[in-house]
Computed example of a mutant assay.
Amino acid sequence: MKTTLTTLLLSALVLVGCMDNLSDLTSPDVQITPQSNSPNWLILPDDLTNYLDSTTQFSSSKLIRGNVGGNIILNVSIPRPGHPLGDFQIYAKIRVEKNSFPADEHRMFTITVDSDYLVFDITPSANTLIKPIKVTARVEGIDVSDINPETFSFISIGDNGEILETTNEQLIVDYDENMVMVLNAWIDPLAIVNILPDSRYGWIRYR
């Protein structure tokens, strides 16, 4: 009996000690830093607006027939005489494969560059199609000195803002030419369950 009481007493002491430790973990004094889910997009140059004029368009559209397919091309070149990073250029090609939607339908596709980030908004959303769209894009005249190729990627945004890694043929950071490029990036349309108003693609640096 004495042995049993001793064992119970020791067990109680251990339980109290564990509860004290648990109390420390859940104490208001313990700071928990939430992880941000927002992508760390590459940004457009801060001084770019100094070189724009009223004719500069960061959007391009094309009417595409289902049984034909086609490309939407965006090509913007902004001279910046004497700028240390050179002229700013942005090129994007969106490939819509034939039979990605009903053959006799015509759909207007639009690609637009975000006003702050190196992000392409594409409408209609890629997950309204049967086949994936393919994105090829190149940007020159940006500061790439702090880009680490190991934490650099070209992604799309899915349901609830989650990051979807693209499959691509090539992802390039050129430090001599101040340039980033991606070749034929795509995601499976089935990766996004809900119908979104548009598709977002762009370069990010993982934190």
Results as ranks from 00 to 15, higher is better:
3 T>S: 13
4 T>H: 13
7 T>F: 14
8 L>C: 07
10 L>C: 03
10 L>S: 06
13 L>A: 14
15 L>I: 11
17 G>M: 07
18 C>A: 15
19 M>D: 02
20 D>H: 02
21 N>V: 12
23 S>Q: 13
23 S>D: 08
24 D>M: 09
25 L>A: 13
27 S>T: 08
27 S>C: 08
32 I>D: 07
33 T>Y: 07
34 P>H: 12
37 N>C: 02
38 S>R: 04
38 S>I: 00
44 L>H: 03
44 L>P: 01
45 P>K: 05
47 D>H: 15
50 N>E: 14
51 Y>C: 10
52 L>G: 13
52 L>S: 14
54 S>I: 06
54 S>E: 09
59 S>T: 14
62 K>I: 01
62 K>N: 02
68 V>Y: 07
69 G>L: 10
69 G>A: 11
72 I>V: 13
72 I>Q: 01
74 L>Y: 01
76 V>R: 08
79 P>N: 09
80 R>P: 04
82 G>H: 09
83 H>F: 05
84 P>Q: 14
84 P>S: 13
86 G>F: 05
86 G>S: 03
87 D>W: 04
87 D>L: 06
90 I>C: 05
90 I>P: 04
91 Y>T: 13
91 Y>L: 13
94 I>M: 12
95 R>K: 10
97 E>Y: 03
98 K>D: 00
101 F>W: 03
102 P>I: 11
103 A>C: 09
103 A>R: 15
103 A>P: 08
103 A>M: 14
104 D>V: 11
105 E>G: 00
106 H>E: 15
110 T>S: 10
114 D>S: 12
117 Y>L: 00
119 V>A: 06
120 F>G: 00
122 I>K: 07
124 P>W: 02
125 S>G: 12
126 A>C: 05
126 A>K: 07
126 A>H: 11
128 T>D: 06
131 K>V: 01
133 I>V: 10
138 R>N: 01
139 V>F: 01
141 G>N: 02
142 I>N: 03
142 I>V: 07
143 D>T: 09
145 S>D: 07
146 D>I: 02
146 D>C: 03
148 N>I: 12
149 P>I: 08
150 E>N: 15
151 T>P: 12
152 F>N: 10
154 F>D: 15
155 I>A: 03
155 I>L: 04
156 S>Q: 05
156 S>G: 10
159 D>L: 10
160 N>R: 07
161 G>K: 01
162 E>N: 08
164 L>T: 03
164 L>D: 00
164 L>Q: 00
167 T>K: 11
168 N>F: 09
169 E>N: 13
172 I>A: 11
172 I>V: 15
175 Y>Q: 07
178 N>L: 05
179 M>Y: 03
180 V>G: 10
180 V>N: 12
181 M>F: 10
182 V>G: 05
183 L>G: 01
186 W>Q: 05
187 I>K: 00
189 P>Y: 05
192 I>D: 02
193 V>S: 04
193 V>E: 02
194 N>L: 09
195 I>P: 00
196 L>H: 05
197 P>M: 11
199 S>A: 12
200 R>P: 00
200 R>G: 00
203 W>R: 04
205 R>K: 15
206 Y>C: 06
206 Y>E: 10
